[in-house]
Computed example of a mutant assay.
Amino acid sequence: MFAADHVLRVRMLYKLIFRVHRALPAELRILGDNYARDEFKRHKNCNPHEASIFLHEWTNYAINLAKQTKPLHQAKKKTVGKYLDPKMLDYMTDEQLVQLYELHKATSLQSDDPDQINVSDKNINDR
């Protein structure tokens, strides 16, 4: 029974994330959708402890993004996102740091052409 509940929770969260991404600008939506899809695939067979942490963090992400994309919040602040606590970098693996850097590069492009952002499904771990 636990496995069925877990699968249901994961599916609901996965769908929620994509629904919340609909409120993002097109470039960020594509980037966010691809990133979420890749992360959920990567963690498909993780151990229960990692799954608990994974679901907790993605749930917080979905809640924060939903709050930030509400029309009232957008009218007041016009911002989306949250700064990463620098202490979190100490807990990340080299692989995660590379992934974070790549994400930073992709979102920091100063271009009017959204097609220049590389949002392919390429797995950063394949490097």
Rank of each mutant, 00 (worst) to 15 (best):
V10T: 10
Q74M: 13
L31S: 13
R9A: 08
S111N: 05
A66I: 00
S111A: 06
I63N: 13
K76Q: 12
T93Y: 07
I124H: 04
Q110P: 00
L109G: 03
M88L: 15
D112E: 12
A23Y: 04
L84K: 03
Y61S: 04
W58V: 00
P25H: 06
D33C: 10
R19S: 08
S120N: 10
R37T: 03
A75R: 13
L55V: 14
K77L: 02
M1C: 01
A75C: 09
E27V: 06
K67L: 15
L13Q: 03
L109I: 14
H21Q: 05
K44E: 15
K15G: 09
M12A: 08
E95G: 02
D115H: 09
L65C: 13
P25D: 12
R19M: 07
I17G: 04
C46M: 05
S108K: 11
M1L: 01
K44M: 12
P71S: 05
D113P: 02
N34A: 03
A26Q: 07
D121E: 14
L13K: 09
E57P: 00
E95F: 00
L8Y: 02
Q110V: 05
A51K: 12
K15H: 09
R37V: 00
M1Q: 09
Y35L: 11
K67G: 10
N64E: 11
F40V: 02
I17Q: 02
K67T: 08
L65R: 09
L55F: 12
L84E: 01
F54I: 12
L24Y: 04
K105P: 00
V119D: 10
S111R: 00
A75D: 12
D126H: 04
D113G: 03
L72F: 06
T69I: 09
N118T: 07
T79I: 07
A66W: 13
K87Y: 02
Y35I: 02
L97M: 08
H49M: 13
Y14R: 15
Q68E: 15
H21Y: 09
V119S: 09
R37Y: 06
H104C: 07
A3T: 14
A4R: 14
H6C: 05
N125K: 15
F54E: 02
I63H: 14
P48Y: 00
G32M: 04
M12Q: 09
A106D: 07
A75N: 11
E57H: 11
V98L: 11
A51S: 12
L84I: 06
Q68I: 01
C46Y: 03
F54W: 05
A75I: 07
L72C: 08
K44H: 12
R19V: 02
I30L: 07
I63M: 15
F18V: 00
N34C: 03
V7I: 02
T59E: 06
V7M: 01
H73R: 02
P48F: 00
L24S: 06
N118K: 15
N47Y: 01
Q99A: 15
D112C: 03
A4C: 04
D115A: 08
L103F: 13
T59P: 05
Q99T: 15
D5E: 14
E95D: 06
T93G: 12
K122F: 10
L55W: 06
T79K: 11
R19G: 06
D113S: 09
H43L: 09
D85R: 06
L55T: 13
S52C: 05
P25W: 01
L13T: 03
Q74K: 15
D38N: 06
Y83K: 15
K78E: 14
Y14F: 14
R37K: 13
